[in-house]
Amino acid sequence: MTGPNPEPQDRNGQVRIEMLGTPRITGGTHAHTLRTTDLAALIRLRPGRTTEYLCRAMDPVNPWSTRSLHPRLSELRNEIGLTDDETPLLPRPKNGSGYVFHPAVASDWHQFQQPAATGLAGSPAQGTADLESTMALVCGRPFDGRTLPWADPVIQEMLSRITDTTHTLARRHSDGDTPDLDAARRTVLQALDIEETSEVLHRDLLHIERAAGNPAAVRRTVSRLQQMARTYDITLDTLTENTIKLVLSDHPSPITAS
């Protein structure tokens, strides 16, 4: 498949493959089909894979043929274009090597990972801004709306890191002499929309609402948590059950409980 000559990319409009929400490609020259976007995500997350691997991964039940794959690759090359020095952003493999994007091609997941690691390891004073910046990249459930067997392991990793980041942010916003419970609540609610089965985030929200003096919100959160457990046939952790008893009692609520 041939197409118009791709235009060099302006670095202010860097090509980026987004996966922390509905998959899409930003900064390219054309609109992108779902299949082309899925293929781009696969190559970005599994660099160096062969033609045979890509064909199997894109449809494990009915693997693509090379006749199906190559037009998609050509379409992707045309859509994302070239670097400023006219180097293809998706070079053709040489000497048996696999498919790898040019380093100029970014992804929101890779942009999330390093600041998240730095923020989680840093002190509240130094690391909170990094965690806030990583959560700003999250637009929804990873690969929202797409069923991609090859992506299942990385989706679970993404959800785990989002949960860890949110939990740490909630604690940091809730700690200290001047806690910002509104910021803590916003962070937790954003993550619960993405990972509604996370008990640690439900516990965070219960402690936040208890500390804020919102008994009605506490009861709503307990009901939401119990409904989630029924929907997914989950037996709640002992810690979660104890947290429910605590926030519904008259005892003080430790905001930073695990």
Rank of each mutant, 00 (worst) to 15 (best):
D38Y: 04
G145P: 09
P4K: 10
L181R: 10
A191V: 15
R72C: 15
N78I: 11
R49D: 06
H251P: 01
H167P: 02
T51G: 11
F143A: 15
Q156A: 11
Y232Q: 13
A191K: 13
N214V: 00
L246C: 03
V100A: 10
L90C: 02
R224I: 02
G176M: 02
R210C: 15
L54P: 08
P179H: 03
T87V: 05
P91H: 04
F143M: 13
D193I: 01
L90Q: 03
R16C: 11
A129E: 12
D180S: 04
Q156D: 15
E157F: 04
D180P: 07
A41P: 00
T128N: 06
E52T: 13
Q227F: 15
T243K: 01
L236Q: 10
T36N: 07
T187H: 12
L169E: 05
G13Q: 07
A125E: 12
P124D: 07
T87F: 02
A170Y: 05
S258T: 12
L90Y: 04
T243C: 14
N78T: 14
R141K: 12
E52V: 15
L201S: 07
S97K: 15
E199M: 05
G3T: 11
N12E: 15
P179N: 01
L159I: 10
L246M: 08
H202S: 06
L159F: 05
A183M: 02
L54D: 01
H110G: 06
D38V: 09
I17E: 11
G81Y: 10
P23S: 09
S74A: 14
E196K: 07
K245G: 00
P124F: 03
L54C: 09
R92S: 06
D38H: 12
P6V: 05
L169P: 05
A257W: 13
V247D: 03
E241Y: 01
F101V: 04
L192V: 11
S223C: 04
D130N: 13
V188F: 12
S198M: 10
F101H: 06
Y99D: 06
H70D: 13
G28A: 02
A125Q: 12
T240M: 08
L206H: 01
H251L: 08
P6F: 12
A229E: 11
N78V: 13
L73F: 05
D10M: 05
D108A: 08
L39S: 11
F112W: 05
T197N: 12
H110A: 10
V200L: 04
A117K: 08
A106E: 06
L120A: 05
L34D: 13
E18P: 00
P91A: 05
